[in-house]
Design a protein around this nucleic acid. Structure first.
Lengths: 198, 198
DNA sequence: TGTTGTTAATTGAACGCTCAATTAATAACG
DNA sequence: CGTTATTAATTGAGCGTTCAATTAACAACA
């Protein structure tokens, strides 16, 4: 277990402050001053630990990606789950409190629009998008014929991302996120029932 | 038929130039100079016709929203379509060339992240989101029992938005958009078959 | 039709502001 | 006391806005 160094601690504090600033002001109005102010530090510290503002923004995005990955791992590793239970865990991992937070949703949307003209970010995004699909496919293959599993995985990935997006943009995100999770799971059940070998 | 005034023409030219600039540089790096340069005009004209840069950005977004609305109208108004055909038209309207363009996808994503802390934009976005759902619900109600129609409309809205998003962010957007359209329609058919009154 | 007066459209340089980055000074720590 | 961590002050490039000046379009009139 690596003992947290001052560096690690400061970096995480700055990432947390970045999320907080984006939540309050949006990425557009997030400056090194709003971030360092929320972190209770001076603005120079950002260049010191991240090489500049852009470095901190990218680190924040990587943090969200990593958390999403870990959310599924902690729900599945070491446990013996039925394929259906594992599909439920995938849904839940995509709707954790962190991923539903205003800070995270704003950051994701900004990240995506940047990723479209930054190859490095685009690569990160594609890995993430593929991971959701692969995870779904793995479980569906244990329940459905191959062709049906592929189709089910594609549709489910779209349903999860689509519900997530519509909830994030909704006027009532809290209720909609809750519903989104339920509807995503219901969708998975329906897909299995209607395509399964009976 | 209202004859286009100089004002109308210039405003549309500037909106087109804005989309072009966002496509090339992203919204982040789009300035009044990149826009006016692409339009072949001077920078001052933007304030003159739109009150400022922000006004032009908002007008550009409204243009995309309006085009989406019109895309469906031109496909349906005056024609007598079966409910299933009308559902196909809804899918197609959401996947027109304009809406698949890099300029449009970058603009939508940037717009959404701004909409989250701008009530005016948020309102526009919610109207648009609701419209997709209402249009779907209208057609599904002619094919399915009420409860099933509601569920089908919600899921289909998520599928369309989800496929659109995943295609926009894909490394191969052209093929993925094409597939997305096919898969969305396939999804609708499956929903009807499995929930319909037989 | 040619001249003049009037309005509309457009330019682009100047201005002031914001903000990321840099620097030098200071504090904490072992 | 030397090194690392952090601050605070400063810089300068980049940006949107403004507005006085210029040009183009049109109207009035003889």
């Amino acid at each position: 277990m690596p003992r947290p160094t001052v560096k690690n601690v400061r970096q995480q504090q700055l990432i947390d402050a970045t999320l907080m600033s984006i939540e309050r002001h949006g990425l557009q109005n997030t400056t090194i001053n709003t971030i360092s102010g929320l972190a209770g530090m001076s603005s120079g510290i950002i260049s010191h630990y991240f090489g500049g503002k852009q470095g901190l923004i990218e680190a924040t995005q990587k943090f969200l990606l990593e958390e999403l990955k870990q959310a599924l791992l902690t729900r599945t590793s070491g446990k013996t789950l039925t394929p259906i239970d594992r599909l439920s865990m995938i849904v839940e991992a995509n709707f954790t409190e962190l991923q539903r937070s205003t800070a995270a949703t704003k950051t994701w949307l900004s990240f995506w629009s940047q990723a479209m003209h930054d190859p490095g970010l685009a690569r990160l995004q594609n890995i993430n998008s593929q991971r959701l699909y692969s995870n779904l496919l793995f479980s569906f293959k244990q329940l459905l014929p191959n062709a049906a599993a592929v189709s089910a995985a594609k549709q489910t990935a779209a349903v999860i991302d689509g519900f997530w997006l519509r909830s994030a943009l909704s006027a009532t995100p809290i209720e909609d996120f809750k519903q989104a999770q339920i509807l995503s799971k219901a969708f998975i059940k329906a897909v299995i029932v209607h395509n399964g070998v009976e």
